[in-house]
Simulated scan of single mutants.
Amino acid sequence: MSDESRKIAVQRLYHDESGESHFVDEMLEVVAQDFAPPAPPFYVSAGVPAKQAVYLFLPAGYVGDFHPAPRRQLMTLISGDLESRVSDGESRRFVPGNTMLVEDTEGKGHWTKAHTDCTMIVSQLE
């Protein structure tokens, strides 16, 4: 891999044609750019049009039964300990700094539990 590009890990939650939801680990390319001159170049991904960004707070013990996402969104956990389960049965635990691309806007959706108070920033995509 060259010094001009790198890859970062992204977790994606999506639904298939039968409505089942799944997790998949993907690698997202970031490319060195002059993004904020006069700061030196750093690595930036391709842009994704967004509708809005909101902060989300889930209190410890919150459980959201299976539901589809209201729209495609990027969710980054800022603080707390969160678990999400997809309809194929896989469950994943999220810690601060984890980001998930949520695309299960149809079908059975996903289940969510906040093990501790959780704060997230959610970018709702167009």
Rank of each mutant, 00 (worst) to 15 (best):
S2Q: 12
S2G: 13
V48T: 13
F94G: 09
D81T: 05
H115D: 06
C118P: 15
S21H: 02
R71I: 10
A9S: 15
D117M: 12
G19H: 11
S87V: 02
P70K: 02
F23A: 07
H22V: 00
G89A: 01
L77G: 05
E103F: 13
K7V: 05
M120Y: 12
R72A: 08
Y14S: 04
V122K: 14
K113N: 10
H115A: 01
T105C: 15
E4H: 10
Y14C: 00
L13K: 13
A32P: 10
G61N: 06
S79W: 14
A39W: 11
A53P: 04
Q124F: 10
L13C: 07
F42L: 03
G19V: 06
R72C: 03
A60I: 11
M1R: 13
A46K: 14
M27Q: 15
S79F: 14
T119Y: 04
V95N: 15
V48Y: 07
L125A: 07
P37V: 02
K51H: 15
M1E: 08
A114L: 06
Q11V: 07
A69P: 02
R71T: 11
V24I: 09
A114K: 12
A53W: 11
K113G: 09
S91W: 00
K113C: 11
A9H: 10
H115C: 14
P40F: 05
A53N: 08
N98G: 05
S21D: 05
R72T: 05
D88A: 01
D65K: 02
E90P: 03
G97F: 03
Y62A: 08
I78A: 07
P49E: 04
P40G: 00
K7I: 04
F35W: 12
I78T: 01
V48A: 10
S91D: 09
R12N: 05
D65P: 03
G89P: 08
G47W: 02
L56G: 03
V63W: 11
F94E: 03
D117F: 06
F57V: 00
A60V: 08
V102L: 07
A50I: 03
S91R: 11
E20K: 14
P59F: 02
F57I: 00
S2V: 12
V54L: 15
D3V: 12
A60M: 07
H110W: 04
E83Y: 06
S123C: 14
K108W: 01
D104I: 11
D34K: 08
S91V: 02
F42T: 14
G19M: 10
E126S: 10
V44T: 07
S21P: 05
T105R: 11
E103K: 14
E126Q: 06
S18V: 09
T105Y: 13
S5M: 09
G61H: 11
G89D: 14
R72E: 06
V10I: 11
D3T: 13
E17M: 08
T119H: 01
L58Y: 14
Q73C: 03
F35C: 06
F57C: 01
L28M: 12
P38G: 05
G47V: 01
A69H: 01
G97S: 01
G109I: 00
P49M: 02
E90L: 03
L13G: 12
R85P: 08
G109W: 00
T76A: 01
K113R: 15
H15S: 15
Q11C: 13
A9M: 02
G89W: 00
E29P: 13
